[in-house]
């Protein structure tokens, strides 16, 4: 059975954006999470943390945007030139990760390869030979107060990315709070996955069929409001 298509990447980012509230310090991982800011109102009141040493990250700058030369000292963690928000600050990497490990970052929005029913996250490599790139993922996954994973529900081959146990090397154990996919919003609770919302046109049975672990249905299970 082929899973329905569900949300686009942009709509997944939009749904993630709805989880964020003014006053939160938020770190966005590389990939789909970087789409989140374009779905926030201008007065979002968030402070974005970039682990390379910026609190108060603004928008990514496109080259030749008429605002003068790009500043080579002002890049985000993905190496893209960025602007600053009002109230921004700079700091070194030790301070940056004191923020992250010390629980001063409210929400980390991370990409995912696999999420397990016990909250384990795998998102840094598919290789078993020790190769890959960890970056800040392990510190963010284990240090942020709340971890939201934004990812496709299934692989290109149709395999589920939500499993009883991750098969790829882990990023952190029991760290994921919420998963937002093209099919559903799923909370990770003590007993496992809880289906909270389905994408428009997608049924709970279809989400279960695309998930390799049992889904409990939330009492207020509903269709996503987008």
């Amino acid at each position: 059975m082929t899973a329905p298509q569900g949300l686009t990447r942009e709509l997944i980012a939009l749904r993630v954006a709805r989880e964020l509230r003014p006053g939160m310090v938020v770190n966005l991982g590389i990939g789909m999470p970087t789409l989140v800011p374009s779905h926030l109102p201008p007065d979002h009141g968030l402070l974005f943390q970039s682990e390379n040493g910026i609190l108060g990250l603004g928008a990514v700058r496109e080259g030749g945007d008429g605002y003068g030369e790009i500043d080579p000292d002002l890049l985000n963690a993905g190496g893209q030139p960025v602007r600053l928000a009002l109230g921004a600050s700079f700091f070194d990497s030790a301070t940056s990760f004191a923020m992250i490990r010390g629980g001063h970052v409210h929400t980390a929005v991370l990409g995912g390869l696999q999420v397990a029913a016990n909250g384990d996250l795998a998102n840094w490599t598919v290789r078993q030979d020790g190769g890959g790139s960890i970056g800040g993922a392990m510190d963010l996954a284990s240090g942020a107060q709340r971890v939201i994973v934004a990812m496709e529900h299934t692989t290109r081959d149709g395999g589920s990315r939500l499993l009883e146990r991750c098969t790829y090397p882990l990023t952190a154990q029991a760290c994921v709070d919420l998963v937002v996919t093209n099919l559903a919003v799923i909370a990770v609770e003590a007993g496992g996955f809880v289906l909270r919302e389905v994408a428009p046109g997608v049924t709970a049975a279809q989400v279960q069929a695309a998930t390799d672990a049992p889904l409990a249905l939330a009492p207020d299970l509903r269709e996503m409001a987008l």
Partner: peptide, 22 residues
């Protein structure tokens, strides 16, 4: 570097970024 790693010509110790700083 990745090509040389695959051929076993270089070594790699990966460490989480915060751990690296500390």
């Amino acid at each position: 570097f990745d090509e040389q790693l695959a051929r076993g010509e270089v070594t790699l110790e990966l460490t989480p970024q915060g751990t690296f700083a500390e």
